[in-house]
């Protein structure tokens, strides 16, 4: 249910409520018919989202991974589903307004480090953009610009690439993508005694992607 709720986040307008501590003695009123009780968020006698879910959301909000409006929206969508389950084919107007019948589908923003939108996985520059000039000088211009060499990554892969894959090695981890690739390229070039060709660079990049098991499905870095 959690995954579906998050994936169903399609609205930006937020109910203005805060997630109160569930230890509150009296139920807090959230919006039309929604109340927070000891078991979770209730609509009348029906449980909309459980206390555990709320707690999980609170952690994610506190960690900056989700924004409060995103969570509000999820709760409201869930509430809408509960109401539909009760056979409310046509939502009363007041309730629809409260649920925020928002316009176009727009993914909620996840405020995590990657700054990625909820529905859009991050696009990762295979050749680090901080070294754009270096790559340009070696032939990565025009149709071969580094902007044509992005890959979309699932969150887990993205973390693994940059964060050390959970081995908790700290400084010992040389496997951070950008660092490792540039080390290999720069050192190879210095040892070769001459500028690397574009083809050699691509070979090294391809080897690196194979090493990380990242499919070479390149997409443009900007835009769709």
């Amino acid at each position: 249910m959690l995954k579906e709720s998050l994936e169903a986040l399609t609205t930006l307008s937020a109910l203005k409520f805060t997630l109160p501590a569930l230890r509150a003695a009296t139920p807090a009123v959230l919006g039309v018919n929604l109340m927070v009780g000891p078991n979770g968020v209730m609509m009348g006698t029906r449980l909309v989202v459980s206390a555990e879910w709320v707690e999980m959301m609170r952690q994610l909000v506190r960690a900056g991974v989700l924004s409060l409006p995103a969570v509000s929206a999820a709760v409201r969508i869930q509430a809408g589903q509960v109401m539909m389950a009760q056979g409310h084919d046509d939502l009363p107007r007041g309730v629809r307004d409260a649920l925020g019948d928002a316009p176009e589908v727009r993914a909620m923003r996840v405020t995590g480090k990657t700054g990625a939108g909820m529905a859009e996985p991050p696009r990762h520059h295979v050749m680090p953009k901080e070294h754009r000039a270096w790559f340009e000088k070696r032939g990565f211009t025009g149709k071969m610009s580094i902007e044509r060499f992005c890959v979309t990554l699932q969150q887990a892969t993205h973390q693994a690439i940059h964060g050390g894959g959970n081995w908790k090695l700290g400084r010992q981890w040389p496997g951070e993508w950008n660092q490792m690739l540039m080390d290999a390229l720069l050192k190879a070039e210095s040892r070769a005694g001459q500028m690397l060709t574009r083809n050699t660079i691509l070979e090294i990049v391809a080897k690196r992607m194979r090493f990380y098991d990242i499919p070479m499905n390149f997409v443009r870095c900007r835009g769709k």
Binding site: P174, D183, A184, A188, S190, I204
Partner: peptide
């Protein structure tokens, strides 16, 4: 020389700080 260079470069990139 290029082969050696690439091998040494890759080795360097695998090496912990």
């Amino acid at each position: 020389r290029l082969k050696v260079a690439v091998a040494l470069g890759t080795w360097f990139s695998y090496t912990p700080e």
